[in-house]
Design a protein around this nucleic acid. Structure first.
Lengths: 350, 350
DNA sequence: GGGTACAGTTCACCACGAAGA
DNA sequence: GTCTTCGTGGTGAACTGTACC
């Protein structure tokens, strides 16, 4: 059974193509009531569904939005993606989503695909350590979107194109560090992100600054990737480290909640007491961090809301309304977070 | 700057449109070496990117795959989606993803959108309690995909179209129930899914059967939706119930891990000892269930792998290779899981 | 309300010269 | 040497809608 086309409907309704198009696909000109009726009935009867590709070609606009994230299974990305999808679904907007597995080449392929689809806008989430050439290719691909009149929004890293949403990585890292110190910890460990993702680098810098300001020292850099799997590796490494270097409670900054949850789990399973022997702090504020026991001390970001607002920014930037607390400065939007004191670190003295 | 079209490339290279098309978009006929060179150089120089909409129109195939899930933030869906995306990305396939928030009307809109895009296949994940009309509309939308020659795969619920992948819901529920009994529990609670999602109903039925066979009785049906938020509600309700009805350890089957993690968290935070006072069992085998402490007893499903295989099933069903343990019976594929004994329930006596 | 020129590709078909019979 | 076959590249008609006149 061949697809039903607009001309089929036109023929059945006994009117012209033009009129049929006007009736069925919201034109400014709406034909007479009687004719509209007839057309709609014919469409209904035949089961007409407009061909989005043909519409895209004729309108030279695809009506599609693109989202590029690194890993859907990571709660950080899935929360942002869920917010975006939620907002998009409310507007009947379809989303082309690409997962890159933190691989620059896959990202480039994905962006190329989105450009081939002539998406009307792109949201790109996550940061990546890139060579100069890779950065240039990213920028070039994003520039194409913009050249076409599409909106570009990136979260966590800027490519010089469109607007960039920055979680307060550095400040958050600092807040986390101060909380750790307030909790009485004097020994510190930090995830050493082997992939050198820029936002992780910033978080680490903020944390390290806070520690150093207070005269403390990062005793152990735990080499592991910023993923849940990396968190397990880090957790095991921490357990060994604590065994080999006894001497009071240590606080570990895991860089992200996903890492923190996994690392803390390994430590707990190894019999280490949290927060007494090991304090654990994360970053992001994923839902699971609140649900587990002890709950995770973290720097809480409105992840799902970031996704929702990002949709507005991509879809109709002119009347996107952002919370007042989001600092807009030219093409940069800084998102505040707030420290969330959980049970995974000793509380500050009251 | 207008988009570069194939004719621009053709003109620059001094050859015809057809030849250009043959060179740039993998046709069976490959032109001579010299000409190919020239065309590719021209395309490169002009920065040509094929217009996917035009290609879709001409080929009458969009090259797009659709995925419909309920909630990206739920680890069950995000794991399956991640697997699908992972496989798709490896083939350079772009995925249209729609999130329905467990709403039948949104689902219908999403399926309509995917049909308008003329997707080459659809994966639909999750089950929903539907009225007869809604079911009919779902089936109709999926039938259109199939009529077009596209593949339809549904996970967790069948609409009579395409192939359906069933996690072993009933058997899993039974296994979970038996594990609870083996752990020595004699009081049982069960999430009472207010949304009546079919797969939750099956899980509950399996669990209840196991309990009844052993002469036990479900003492408390905790009314809450099958979401993390529902898990928190359920956790609080359980805490109250245990306070009001003391009398030995109780085991709670949460229907999904997402619910279990949240419910267990509330109980632990309320000071209830797990597994001594309250045992908690989930279903699905999400990664977080292993990371938390105590780890979650659950019925482990290969979620990410389900997503990966689903991609094959949707993309090239003829040579999709499925694990031998997956039982294929006509259009139904049953996926075995296995009990994973965690610390959230008392272990069976050795 | 109706004709019709696009939008950017693909594809079936055609013409042409070279090679083999 | 004429006739068929083959490998090439080109022509024009789809494909399905939109929007201008």
């Amino acid at each position: 059974m061949a697809q039903v086309t607009l001309s089929d409907v036109a023929r059945t309704a006994g009117v012209s193509l033009a009129t049929t198009s006007r009736v069925l696909n919201g034109s400014s000109r709406v034909p007479g009531k009687a004719i509209s009726q007839r057309v709609m009935q014919a469409a209904e009867k035949l089961g007409y569904v407009p061909n989005a590709s043909a519409q895209a070609l004729a309108r030279s606009s695809s009506g599609l939005l693109g989202v590029v994230i690194q890993d859907l299974e990571d709660p950080y990305f899935s929360a942002v993606a869920a917010g975006f999808q939620e907002a998009a679904g409310g507007q009947g907007q379809l989303v082309l989503m690409a997962q890159t597995s933190r691989d620059a080449d896959l990202t480039i392929v994905a962006l190329g695909g989105l450009n081939a689809q002539r998406v009307d806008g792109v949201l790109m989430v996550g940061s990546l350590d890139l060579s100069a050439e890779q950065r240039a290719v990213f920028s070039d691909q994003l520039a194409r979107v913009e050249a076409r009149g599409g909106q570009v929004v990136t979260v966590g890293q800027s490519y010089g194109i469109g607007r960039t949403v920055y979680p307060a990585d550095r400040d958050g890292g600092r807040a986390i560090g101060q909380a750790a110190i307030a909790g009485g910890y004097q020994r510190f460990a930090l995830l050493d992100d082997v992939t050198r993702a820029p936002s992780a680098v910033d978080r680490a810098a903020g944390f390290a600054a806070a520690i150093e300001e207070s005269g403390g020292r990062i005793e152990y850099h735990v080499p592991a990737p910023v993923t849940a799997a990396g968190g397990r590796v880090a957790g095991d490494a921490l357990v060994r480290h604590l065994e080999e270097h006894p001497g009071g409670p240590m606080c570990f900054f895991a860089m992200t909640d996903a890492v923190a949850v996994a690392a803390m789990g390994r430590a707990l399973h190894a019999g280490i007491r949290v927060p007494d022997e090991l304090g654990v702090v994360g970053f992001d504020g994923i839902a699971a961090g609140r649900d587990i026991a002890p709950s995770l001390t973290t720097f809480d970001l409105p992840l799902r809301d970031i996704g929702r607002r990002a949709f507005e920014l991509v879809h109709h930037p002119e009347d996107a309304d952002l919370p007042e607390t989001w600092e807009v400065h030219e093409d940069t939007i800084t998102i505040p977070g707030r420290l969330w004191q959980g049970g995974s670190t000793s509380p500050p003295p009251t």
